[in-house]
Simulated assay, not measured.
Amino acid sequence: MTLVDLTRPIESGMPTYPGDPPVSVESHATFDRDGYRVARLELGSHTGTHVDAPAHTEPDGATLDSYSVDELRMTAQVVDCRGVGAGGKITPAHLPEIESDVECLVFRTGWEDEWGTDRMTEHPSLSAELAQFCADRGYAVATDALSPDPTGGSEIPVHNAVLGAGNLIVENLCGLAMLPVGESFTLFVLPLRVDSDGAPARVVAEF
């Protein structure tokens, strides 16, 4: 059994989605002054590696706290779409043969390497057709990019389709090169237990 952590560390000044709150991790109490340590965290609900709940974009969508632990453990499969390129569209033609028990598609765009660069927002995105394909089959969607939709766009068809179907979206994964190709694995997506539209999560693959 191999465990792979796909989670970005949370740290002060880390990259965020344009317009989201900045991230700060600061000392609140210290050993020298207080005899113990406590940190003060300031961050948005969509900081770093995180999960989008339907409530993020759907007026009547479920919040994260309504998902059981069992629903946060998914059989997943990688979709290698690194050849799509900046601003390109990932379509159903990019999908491999998907195993019958898969519950989450993990899109490897290659944009984890652009984290913190000027190109970070230029990532590929899923086509509306592929988004509906995922929604119709009950697939959660995970990506190594900022979003499965174009960043900064006025329309979010992927979020609307996937979250609208009650499925989850996981964003800003890293370490996808360590995942198996062509076979499924178990994905543990464990966000903070908060009644919210989303939350940072520890995401771990087991195979």
Rank of each mutant, 00 (worst) to 15 (best):
P18R: 13
E26V: 14
D80G: 10
A135P: 01
Y36E: 15
I10L: 14
T151G: 04
M1C: 11
D80H: 05
E129P: 02
S147W: 04
D20T: 10
G88R: 08
C134V: 04
L187N: 00
V38Q: 13
G116I: 11
A29C: 13
H56Y: 13
R8E: 00
I156G: 08
A93D: 14
P200I: 06
A62P: 06
V102G: 09
A39T: 12
T30F: 07
P191A: 02
T186Q: 03
F31S: 02
D52L: 14
L173E: 02
I90D: 06
Q77L: 11
T143R: 05
S127K: 05
T7S: 14
S196H: 07
A199H: 01
E97R: 14
V79N: 00
P54D: 06
P92T: 07
R193D: 15
T75R: 15
A142F: 02
Y139Q: 03
S68N: 06
D65T: 07
R82S: 11
W111P: 05
E114T: 14
V158M: 02
A145V: 09
C104R: 06
E171R: 15
T7P: 04
I90E: 06
M74R: 13
F207Y: 15
T117Q: 08
R33C: 10
E206M: 09
L179W: 09
E122P: 00
T16W: 01
A140L: 02
E11L: 09
T75W: 00
G44N: 01
S100F: 07
G166M: 04
S68Y: 02
L95F: 03
G182F: 06
A177N: 12
D118A: 15
G88W: 05
F207A: 10
P92L: 06
T47N: 00
Y139A: 08
V204I: 14
L179H: 01
P15C: 08
P150I: 03
H123F: 01
D113I: 00
A55E: 04
G153S: 15
I90T: 12
L176D: 10
I169C: 01
